[in-house]
Design a protein around this nucleic acid. Structure first.
Length: 388
DNA sequence: TATCCTTTGAAGGAA
DNA sequence: TTCCTTCAAAGGATA
């Protein structure tokens, strides 16, 4: 078993080592999420067959320039650990025609460098000038193609706020709001009328639009249903997107925002704060308890911080992301000014970080290396016990 | 039944 | 100006 310099086409994790893979198994579908990329089973070059448990995950054939190997054991059939019954691979990642890459992330241009590139730098105003100053002539639902792009199969996508995008959709356009009682009485909506009243939801941002589009695909590929897990995958995919790809969603989000502004001129995001005051009993604080708001909830800039999953999501941007000076077990390493140095100065300007933040960052890096090394040792041990 | 989880981005308030 | 909090979607899990 080795780690491959490749990427899981489901969770988009980068793998660690380069060992000329032939057949690989991704562990991202297992109860335990990927820890350091995906754990792969490697069969001897040119040979294909059953993989060893417990890796029952998806199958990826990594050499897309070659036709599928003619071997009765390929693709392998896995046994569902719960039912004991054979089950097909979850992800149709078998070789694409030569020259094609079955997954957009699986392109030769994709490197670890692009994986670690900074976040999308554009602000909501980054597209200023790209659009007419007024969209007042545009219908909320069209014209067809207004909000479409090659990756989105919903030209003129109905606004989530207007039509209701799903079970949790509550926002209605003013017209639909007034009609909501009719629709309720006619049985078209199962939402209690009182839940819909005057609640104008925020326009979706770029990532939300991306999620909305990609979620069904991920569900179809992975058979996952839990949104937390799906969102982690989507987050990785989002980071793995090309800048141009992300730009499409930022553009859509900008249009969404403009339309929202026109529909609800006096609306403020603040309006929704009160509506959900009952919510969020207590976003979990750090283990130290009462560690202040900087650690709890959406701190660390709101995202990418020390989420509970960051320890297991490994390369997903968790790990050393965020100012680790907020680690409760850190005694001397408290960031004195509580300015998160990493967030403030970025990873490239560590010289400007305060000492505690820097040392903690080094520690966390070392911890990740240790984890990798442990895993590598485990892998090597298994290889020695079960030589390929 | 309500909230949490999990993601990123945007908005708004506090310092 | 910077940081922090909340909310947007989604649906299973949990209290």
């Amino acid at each position: 078993m080795v780690l491959l310099d490749s990427m899981c086409s489901t969770c988009s994790s980068l793998l660690l080592d380069k060992m000329a893979p032939a057949l690989s198994i991704c562990s991202c579908l297992f109860p335990e999420p990927c820890t350091i990329g995906c754990v792969l089973d490697l069969l001897p070059a040119g040979k294909f067959g059953m993989v060893q448990p417990p890796y029952h995950g998806l199958v990826m054939y990594n050499d897309f320039t070659q036709p599928p190997p003619a071997h009765k054991g390929y693709p392998p059939v896995y046994t569902d650990p719960k039912t004991g019954l054979p089950r097909p691979p979850m992800y149709a990642a078998y070789p694409a025609p030569p020259g094609q890459f079955p997954h957009p992330l699986y392109s030769p241009e994709f490197t670890s460098a692009s994986w670690h590139r900074p976040g999308y730098p554009l602000t909501s105003g980054a597209f200023a000038g790209s659009f007419p100053p007024s969209l007042s002539s545009l219908s909320r639902y069209g014209p067809p193609g207004l909000l479409s792009h090659p990756g989105l199969g919903h030209p003129g996508i109905p606004h989530h706020a207007s039509l209701g995008a799903g079970p949790k959709s509550e926002l209605m356009s003013p017209q639909l709001l007034s009609d909501s009682h009719h629709s309720n009485s006619s049985g078209h909506s199962t939402e209690p009328p009182q839940k819909k009243k005057n609640h104008i939801k925020k326009p979706l941002n770029a990532f939300m639009l991306f999620m909305k589009e990609q979620r069904p695909k991920v569900i179809a590929e992975c058979t996952l249903r839990e949104s937390s897990a799906i969102n982690q995958i989507l987050g990785r995919r989002w980071h793995a997107l090309d800048r141009s790809e992300q730009a499409k969603y930022y553009e859509m989000a900008r249009k969404e925002k403009e339309l929202h502004l026109q529909l609800y001129p006096g609306w403020s995001a603040r309006d929704n704060y009160a509506a959900h005051q009952k919510k969020k009993k207590r976003k979990k604080d750090g283990p130290g308890g009462g560690g202040g708001s900087s650690m709890g909830g959406a701190g660390m800039g709101g995202h990418g911080g020390l989420s509970p999953m960051s320890g297991v999501s490994g390369m997903s941007g968790g790990g050393s992301m965020g100012c680790l000076s907020m680690e409760p077990e850190n005694k001397s390493g408290e960031c004195p000014n509580e300015k998160k140095c990493r967030a403030r100065y970025g990873i490239e300007q560590q010289s400007r970080w305060c000492k505690p933040c820097r040392s903690l960052h080094e520690k966390s890096d070392q911890a990740m290396v240790d984890t990798d090394q442990k895993h590598f040792l485990l892998v090597k041990t298994k290889e020695e016990v079960h030589p390929l």
